[in-house]
Write a protein that binds this DNA or RNA. Structure first.
Length: 706
RNA sequence: GGGCCCGUAGCUCAGCGGUUAGAGCAGGGGACUCAUAAUCCCUUGGUCGGGGGUUCGAUCCCCUCCGGGCCUACCA
């Protein structure tokens, strides 16, 4: 009986673009979902953008647009990136959706009704200019203990002491630069301790969590009373207002996991499926805390599986089960937790160019290679995953191109006119052996041990190529009397190839598609690997995967470094990440250094004619302290001379050829060294810290910036 | 400061209380020419981080030290 499985990946935060770190999770999950579907289980993959919170509100303000516009743009970009990596969601929603608002309300009511909510005043620093309460990290001042200047609101880097931001001497808001005041506001708390017994049982029983996670929770959180969870934020806050507490909003981490359910509701509305049959309202402590089934009986109820990164463990293993339990919803069958991505053994680094956005990767490399590489490195454990770039190139080329695709590539040509033999020939047990390995491979996929699955599959490929070698079809071809034998040998080799394509289908859907097309027999189910294909035509072989080169990888790294250099002020510390899966939180220092100016109308903005321009030449102005003389093209014969104060930041030769944005209708200005006919757009405080703006690939000189 | 994880061949990793510790890649030698300079065969290479202990026997269990990573910080 097919299982019914609902799978989620963590909701990416709308504050940043998808990068290679995010993709570990979405690819890991996508592989698992594709595997389940291939096995004949009913499985859906749900996700959504996580859109609420202070960070979004601040960013929208910084960018001078509404939160809704910001999150819509980001969601479109996220979905584009996911699709390009063959990450196939059954539904992709948003936490800022009516479905989510309604579900939050329902669950909130249940928690209220269960008597788990209490109110308490929280004193926080408030920025009267920005009109918002300030999280600790948005306040800087002098340490009250040791007097060190410029310390964040929660602790001192110098002496290590911790304190409340209100204790800081001369506190300053990093948003507006003004001095914040202490204000008190009522917050709502969920008394998680009342669920302690349930959480003890749920986390430690069954197979809901990896052993190291269950152990971690036991030792770190469950060994003492659980603290109340502050789930409200006072206005202004971008999120949902709490219906029975006007002026207060649900904290982003309250509504984010409910977003899984909201996405399910959208999917149900789209497909006519019933919400209750995928996420039933049931599950008392006794039922849910026990292992769901014995070995004899397959589960009959739908399963909910969450895939998350280790940074958001406690939201998904304590708060979320607590919420579900209280609201009477079925609990997750399993929360699968993975580690972080490192590149060449180190944390991803913007300055080293190893902080690679999904879109940047796609400019240079094939998504299939990343899917395979991650698969070959993923285990069921919480360990970090290292992406060694040399290994990435070697492994993809050797395994996928050299071993797997090569089987088809070297044999398909011999049988393009005859097709495969009418009966499957004696192959010394090769096919049967690989078919028998299917269950071991499936077991590895099932438990997320993709590393083992890939090793098992490649071991099969390692048996297939020697078969071709021993039977040397290229020699058989020379003798017309051996035509039947030639066809047999190729029938074996091509079937072995197809078997590998089936086993790799969860990882490499495109390869499975191509393998299906080669014989005009689509690969649709796992058992396609257990029956050989016979008596079918073989279509002309077409390249299935292009080898990657170290140069392409290098270009990707270069581009990432340039992107980072254009966005990250050197020398300023990055604020720590917000508690969302691999999301980025930028420092507030830049905005504080130069607060926003007064608002302008769209008509005001339209007066400024920004254009894409290409730098044709750049030369030093020796007598000038800061200036370079640039000649830029606006396309055709239209050229401008611009003096730009970027000498300390750029070498003239590195500028030639690149695209920049210029203010094209700025009144010409006579300078000591000549007439400047425009202005090149750049950010940064000045000196060596000047960062030219670049358009994305595809922009051409002369285009106006709107 | 507390906690967790890791340290096995040049690299990435498997393994496991018990014959002589494995794989892929890289390196060396040879073969082949069908294939995306792919493939096949042979081969070099490890005091399983150091030191103690338990055991008939330890890479595996325990202690400790060293090194690396991550999390969290008047709490875990």
């Amino acid at each position: 009986m097919p299982r019914q499985i609902l799978v989620t990946a963590a909701l990416p935060y709308a504050n940043g673009h998808i990068h290679l770190g995010h993709l570990v999770e979405y690819i890991q999950t996508d592989i698992w979902v594709r595997f389940q579907k291939l096995r004949g289980n009913r499985c859906i993959y749900l996700c959504a953008d996580d859109t609420h919170g202070t960070a979004i509100m601040i960013r929208a303000r910084q960018e001078g647009r509404s939160e809704e516009v910001l999150i819509a743009d980001m969601q479109a970009a996220h979905e584009r990136d996911f699709a390009a990596f063959d990450i196939a969601f059954d539904n992709y929603g948003s936490t800022n959706s009516p479905e989510n608002r309604q579900l939050c309300g329902e669950i909130w009511q249940s928690i209220r009704a269960a008597g788990l909510v209490r109110a308490a005043d929280v004193s926080q620093l408030y920025d009267p200019v920005a009109g918002t309460f300030l999280a600790d990290r948005f306040v800087k001042g002098t340490c009250p203990k040791c007097g060190a200047a410029d310390q964040y609101g929660d602790s001192c880097d110098k002496c290590g002491s911790t304190y409340s931001p209100a204790d800081l001497i001369n506190p300053t808001s990093t948003l507006s630069g003004t001095s914040p005041e202490v204000r008190s506001a009522a917050h709502l708390f969920i008394e998680l301790e009342k669920l302690h017994a349930f959480l003890d049982t749920w986390t430690q029983s069954g197979n809901h969590l990896q052993p190291e996670i269950a152990n971690y929770l036991k030792g770190h959180f469950l060994g003492e009373p659980l603290r109340d969870w502050d789930v409200s934020r006072p206005a202004p806050y971008f999120g949902f207002e709490i219906p029975d507490s006007p002026g207060n909003y649900w904290y982003v981490w309250f509504d984010a996991p409910i977003g899984y359910m909201a996405s399910l509701r959208q999917w149900c509305d789209k497909t006519g499926e019933k919400f209750e049959s995928w996420w039933p309202r049931e599950g008392t402590i006794n039922e849910s805390a026990q292992p769901p089934t014995s070995n004899l009986q397959p589960p009959t109820s739908p399963e909910v599986h969450h895939f998350i990164g280790k940074d958001i463990t406690y939201f998904h293993t304590l708060f979320w089960p607590g919420m579900l339990k209280t609201a009477g919803y079925q609990l997750p069958e399993k929360v699968h937790i993975h580690g972080f991505l490192t590149v060449n053994g180190e944390k991803m680094s913007k300055s080293k160019g190893t902080f690679v956005r999904a879109a940047t990767y796609l400019n240079h490399l094939d998504p299939s290679f990343l899917r395979y590489y991650y698969a070959s490195k993923l285990t069921p454990r919480v360990d970090d995953l290292d992406m060694n770039l040399e290994e990435f190139v070697a492994k993809g080329n050797a395994d996928l191109v050299g071993k797997v695709v090569n089987l088809a590539s070297r044999c398909a040509g011999f049988v393009k006119t005859t097709g495969l033999s009418a009966r499957y020939p004696d192959d010394g047990g090769l096919f049967a052996h690989a078919a028998a390995e299917g269950e071991a491979i499936a077991a590895a996929y099932e438990e997320c041990d993709y590393n083992r699955a890939m090793r098992l599959i490649m071991a099969l490929a390692d048996r297939a190529n020697p078969f071709v070698e021993e039977n040397a079809p290229w020699n058989l071809k020379k003798d017309p009397a051996q035509a039947a034998r030639l066809q047999e040998v190729c029938t074996v080799a091509l079937n072995l190839f197809r078997q590998l394509a089936v086993y790799l289908a969860p990882v490499l859907p495109r390869l499975a598609q191509q393998a299906g097309e080669l014989f005009d027999r689509p690969i649709t189910k796992w058992t396609d690997a257990s029956e050989p294909l016979v008596d079918v035509p073989v279509r002309p072989f077409q390249h299935m995967l292009k080898r990657v080169t170290p140069e392409e990888v290098q270009k990707m790294i270069e581009e990432s470094r340039e992107e980072a250099a254009a966005t990250t002020p050197a020398g300023l510390p990055l604020a720590p990440p917000v508690p969302s899966d691999t999301a980025q939180q930028d420092s507030a220092a830049a905005l504080a250094a130069e607060p926003l100016t007064s608002e302008c109308s769209i008509d005001d903005f339209a007066k400024v004619d920004l254009r894409v321009a290409r730098i044709l030449s750049a030369e030093d102005v020796p007598e000038a302290r800061k200036l370079l003389k640039l000649t830029v093209s606006l396309g055709g014969d239209v050229k401008r001379t611009v003096f730009a104060g970027i000498k300390a930041a750029y070498q003239p030769e590195q500028l030639v050829g690149r695209l920049v944005i210029i203010v094209a209708n700025l009144a010409p200005r006579q300078m000591k060294f000549g007439l400047s006919e425009g202005m090149v757009c750049a950010s940064g405080p000045g000196g060596a810290e000047v960062y030219l703006l670049s358009p994305d690939n595809g922009a051409v000189p002369g285009q106006r910036v709107h």
